[in-house]
Design a protein around this nucleic acid. Structure first.
Lengths: 222, 222
DNA sequence: CGCTGAATTGACGGACATCAAGATGTGTGG
DNA sequence: CCACACATCTTGATGTCCGTCAATTCAGCG
């Protein structure tokens, strides 16, 4: 839902960039592609927000920690998605690569400077923030639902973003999903098997999911 | 937390406007004060977002409904706060007056038109959205905590916004609080009395709350 | 007053967390 | 290619927090 957040800040084209394919945009010159290993930090909470980022390949999660060690995953970013814009001067969350990832990094000041005289760009930046806001709004709705509904919603959200086929590959672990949905890893796992048993999905591997009854999932998504 | 969101879009002064006092700003001319009765709708979900709003007196809640009737209150807006900016072209949530309220209403197109040539204004609009985003981020963190922590956080949030004294007046009902925190009215009520019994707060009336042990509340706020 | 909606309090049950064990998968080094 | 180690995922047993249902108290108001 509320899927791709990539107006032409990095890429002029309107579709998400496919992995390993650098967007042919004016911003490509402002940004440098960087590699991040699995679990490597892209930026940390409370650090100055000096860059904008776009996922080229792999996947990224943003999260915040509660003092007692609980973790709330705020968002997953897939190829084409832009992130790191959420903040004022300082990052409100940390970002980590979920898997080996390639990320385009553009200096914020440079982007902003260009936005000064390019009306379009400024508007797009704003739009980006608004989209992000919508996403988070949507997410807070998720957190008042029950486990079944949360997981169903999650699967449909991911399906709406990744490939359009009948199966999706989840880049993130069960723990990531749990922390995103505000559940425990066990509850997520149990809900998956429950979905399998009721014929809603099938698991090719634990990370690869076949949709068998999308209508029923939509019904749960309430 | 993350309290007042009122850069000089409506008022040039940096402090929230006190109730019934119209901000002496250039924008006051772009906006007209309107009265809303208790529970009156300011705008509805999916309606075109044609105006920006600033609370002058009273209080406003924004919310979204789930199909099964559950309601998620997304935010409370107090005097000085600006709302209605969250959306693209369409409102993502509904807004209602919590009590008899006075709201300054400014045509969005007019504000945007001015923003075109007033750099400051444009920046402030963006800042406003970012602040809103921070608020919502914060809110989604709340929803993974337990009841005690949620209520404590709520009280501290309200304390940080309203008067600076040792007591606060809550304009909203227990039901509003419950829907904001993702709890039931009964759990909110029980948590309040629990706080009273442990000497953290005192209830002058059910809506008026005295702080007795802010340190303990902060500890719960985790 | 009595009426009405809001808030509180109690009894109970259920959904999900917690604790614990096992199964499956994956990478590494011999 | 196998074997071992370690992480991830699944499954089971039990506990607990909070939701549900229901009754009572309280506050405002005609």
């Amino acid at each position: 839902m509320l899927a791709a957040t990539n107006p032409a800040i990095f890429a002029r084209q309107s579709m998400p960039v496919r992995s390993s394919e650098v967007p042919d945009s004016p911003l490509a010159m402002m940004g440098a592609p960087m590699r991040f290993a699995r679990n490597a930090e892209v930026y940390g909470e409370d650090e100055p927000a000096e860059y904008y980022y776009q996922v080229l390949s792999g996947a990224v999660r943003t999260y915040r920690m509660l003092d007692d060690g609980r973790r709330q995953v705020l968002a997953f970013y897939l190829p084409g998605d832009i992130f790191g814009v959420e903040a004022g001067d300082v990052h409100l969350s940390s970002a980590e690569a979920i898997s080996e990832s390639q990320v385009l990094v553009a200096k914020r000041s440079a982007v902003m400077a260009r936005a000064e005289h390019e009306r379009d760009l400024a508007k797009q930046l704003w739009t980006l923030t608004v989209r992000e806001l919508q996403r988070v709004h949507q997410h807070s709705l998720v957190l008042i639902k029950n486990a079944e509904e949360r997981v169903a919603g999650f699967l449909l959200e991911m399906a709406g973003r990744g490939a359009s086929g009948t199966a999706i590959e989840l880049p993130m672990s069960r723990q990531d999903i749990a922390d995103y949905l505000g559940l425990t890893i066990e509850t997520v796992s149990r809900t998956f098997t429950q979905f399998v048993q009721s014929g809603l999905i099938a698991l090719e591997t634990s990370r690869r999911i076949q949709f068998r009854n999308r209508a029923a999932l939509n019904r749960l998504n309430a």
